[in-house]
């Protein structure tokens, strides 16, 4: 992507491409976050800032700690050390559901649609502050039916936008992989988040759907939301991200615009290796298999 097309108002213009660099308007700031599994330090991040209103990609080889970092930031896992804040408010020891209520919503690597609920029910669940979700008012329909109608209206708009309106009454379990990703994204919008965190939004999506998914991610930024996503698909990273953070072995090893990072020889050598163009997920599984086979042969 030629650099001269970057708008002059680029908020990240002039930010140095050094790991842990300060951003002009950071929505999410974390320092000295570590998480250990057994002897392995899965995450060891000294400092990280996510710029508001842009799309930031988090890349790195398998086992680099990207998903673990997601889990820690969103309260799905507790770090051993570290502090982090969202919109200036500390998120330490804040449970996952409260993190979401504050406007930081995530999706999952393996999509978590609620298979035996219909698509529209999946969407309705996303709305926050529902009176009908309180035990004592739940039995009395009159108390919540008005709110339910407006929630449904909003859900239908989002379904139309994500081209899922035809599937409205289907069980979510009957959707294809790509449609599930779309539904999960649409559902998280029901929470109306400021920061939306997508864990591998392209994994398992068929190529025909990829372009429209890319469009949807960009549209999130265009309506003023901040996007942070984990991805292995380098094309997607190059296409839509404004900023890229590279992780390896739990640490942040590089940051910068997509072009800067892609051309960073250190990044290519150390973390993408000679397999730059192959899909990293596949690669790692093959390697693992070979390792296991070798081990078993040795034992025999």
């Amino acid at each position: 992507m030629p650099a001269d097309t970057t708008p002059t108002t680029d908020p990240l213009a002039g930010v140095a491409n050094t790991p842990g660099v300060k951003k002009p308007d950071a929505i999410l700031v974390g320092s000295s976050i570590t998480r250990q599994f057994g002897g392995l330090k899965a995450v060891d991040v000294e400092h990280v800032e996510i710029q508001r209103g842009v799309i930031t990609a988090l890349i790195g080889p398998n086992g680099a700690g990207k998903t673990t970092l997601f889990n820690l930031l969103t309260g799905f896992d507790a770090p051993d050390t570290g502090e982090w804040s969202f919109n200036g408010q500390s998120l330490q020891k804040v449970p996952a559901y409260k993190v979401a209520r504050r406007g930081m919503v995530r999706t999952f690597q393996l999509t978590k649609v609620l298979s035996r609920l219909t698509v529209i029910e999946n969407m309705r669940l996303g709305a926050t502050g529902q009176r009908g979700e309180r035990f004592w008012s739940a039995p009395f329909r009159a108390l919540w039916s008005g709110q339910e109608d407006s929630i449904t209206e909003r859900a239908d708009e989002l379904l139309a936008r994500f081209k899922l309106d035809a599937k409205r009454e289907d069980f979510a379990g009957s959707l294809s992989g790509g449609q599930r990703k779309l539904l999960e994204m649409a559902r998280s919008l029901m929470v109306d988040p400021e920061l939306i965190m997508l864990d591998e939004p392209m994994a398992g999506v068929n190529p025909a759907l990829k372009q429209s998914l890319l469009g949807h991610v960009k549209s999130l930024r265009d309506e003023g939301r901040t996007v942070l996503f984990v991805e292995h698909d380098m094309d997607m990273v190059r296409d839509i991200s404004d900023w890229v953070i590279v992780m390896a072995q739990g640490k942040i090893v590089a940051e910068g615009t997509p072009d800067q990072v892609m051309s960073d020889q250190a990044v290519i050598d150390a973390y993408l290796g000679a397999h730059h163009d192959t899909d990293i997920t596949e690669l790692d599984e093959t390697e693992l298999e070979q390792a296991t086979e070798a081990e078993l042969d040795q034992e025999a």
């Binding site: 298999e289 296991t292 086979e293 078993l296």
Partner: peptide
């Protein structure tokens, strides 16, 4: 024994064990 190790391999990750010919 190999049996014991295979058992542990299956316990750890059945899919992977299967794909490595176990």
């Amino acid at each position: 024994t190999r049996l014991g190790k295979s058992m542990r391999a299956v316990a750890d990750n059945p899919a992977l064990s299967a794909s490595s010919g176990l």
